[in-house]
């Protein structure tokens, strides 16, 4: 692989996300993820701690924020018009109630959904007019479009904020990934719907690789890196289709094992990928008696580990199907070895 070619691809797909040392990079409005809240709340928890405590950000969120509604939208339960008004309401609440100009979401699906809505407003003014009118009529609120990336209508994802601040985070890190092989898996809804809104593009995204490199990891590629995790709202929602998800995970991990058997870390930025790439390894182990033991960490979980947060109490690694201890040993992160694995996973 030619690194220069990859850098060239990255240069084509950059977006301007303010870092904490910039005047507009300190105050952020954020949208929580309904999927993470229900399936893996710890990933948001550790992200909050890092952004507030380690980067000193002023994170603001309103009790009146709702889900972006994307699961209903992609599942054909709600329609586009509803999506647009829901998005406009959340933007309006953030700007007029919380006084924020910059917004990010923890979920890649929310990020894609908000981006889609913003692009539709830009390209089809009548939809914007409709939304503005409906927002006023139904909620009495004023319409506002966020302009996060370089002053153009846009929102960003939480991993973009981590990426923009990666060097500050790496400077504070207690542990390094030096000598650790790692790879990335970027959520479809982060990069594949709007590649131009993805840091580094859809094919060779930089957002997670940049974080891994900042922490000193040796980033590797493998043939099935871009293969979907297989979650898909329809697959994971219907038990009859769950074998598709497990099949996809199996295909990916087999490919990684073949190319780099010593790579035991995949960094993710999508709630679905974070949960299913890990959980289906449990299914594969049960059904096929085959183990891959590749740790699937969210960008915030990995950053938290390296900053010295407790793997189980803070980073939420007690709920993973793949045991985290071998990776902790590899990085050199201490944990209480006097306790059993189960005891360690019950820190409260």
């Amino acid at each position: 692989m030619k690194l220069a070619g990859k850098v060239k691809a990255w240069e084509k797909h950059q977006k301007a996300v303010p870092s904490v040392d910039e005047p507009n990079g300190k105050v952020w409005g954020c949208f929580r993820s309904c999927f993470l809240q229900s399936a893996a709340p710890y990933t948001e928890g550790i992200a909050y701690k890092i952004l507030k405590n380690d980067l000193g950000m002023d994170l603001r969120e309103a009790p009146g924020h709702t889900s972006c509604g994307a699961i209903g939208y992609h599942g054909d339960v709600s329609n586009l018009e509803t999506q647009m008004v829901v998005a406009a309401r959340n933007f309006s609440v953030a700007h007029y109630e919380l006084g924020v100009n910059n917004l990010f979401s923890f979920c890649v699906t929310s990020f894609a959904n908000y981006t889609e809505v913003i692009k539709l407003w830009e390209e089809e003014p009548e939809l914007k007019e409709y939304t503005e009118k409906m927002l006023k009529e139904t909620t009495g609120r004023e319409f506002w479009i966020p302009r996060v990336s370089g002053g153009r209508p846009s929102v960003v994802h939480a991993s973009d904020v981590f990426f923009a601040n990666r060097h500050f985070l790496a400077a504070k890190a207690k542990y390094s990934l030096k000598g650790v092989k790692a790879t990335d898996h970027v959520g479809c809804h982060y990069a594949k719907i709007f590649p131009e809104e993805s840091m580094g593009g859809a094919e060779f995204p930089q957002v997670l690789v940049g974080i891994l490199e900042a922490f000193g990891a040796e980033v590797v590629d493998y043939p099935e890196r871009r293969h979907c995790c297989g979650m898909g709202f329809r697959q994971c929602a219907f038990p009859e289709n769950r074998d598709y998800t497990a099949g996809s995970v199996y295909k990916k991990l087999q490919s990684l094992k073949e190319a780099h058997p010593d790579c035991k870390l995949i960094l993710t930025n999508c709630p679905g990928c974070t949960v299913f790439l890990d959980a289906e390894q449990g299914t594969i182990k049960e059904v096929l008696e085959e183990e891959f033991n590749v740790s699937i960490l969210d960008y915030a979980q990995l950053t938290g580990l390296l900053l010295g947060y407790d793997p189980f109490k803070d980073c939420g690694l007690n709920a993973k199907a793949v045991a985290i201890e071998p990776l902790l040993d590899q990085i050199g992160i201490p944990y209480d070895k006097s306790k059993t694995a189960e005891q360690r996973r019950r820190p409260f």
Partner: peptide
């Protein structure tokens, strides 16, 4: 051909 990033031109040897 580098515009078709999925084909890896300029990246894959």
């Amino acid at each position: 051909a580098a515009l078709k990033e999925e084909y890896g031109y300029g990246i894959y040897n």
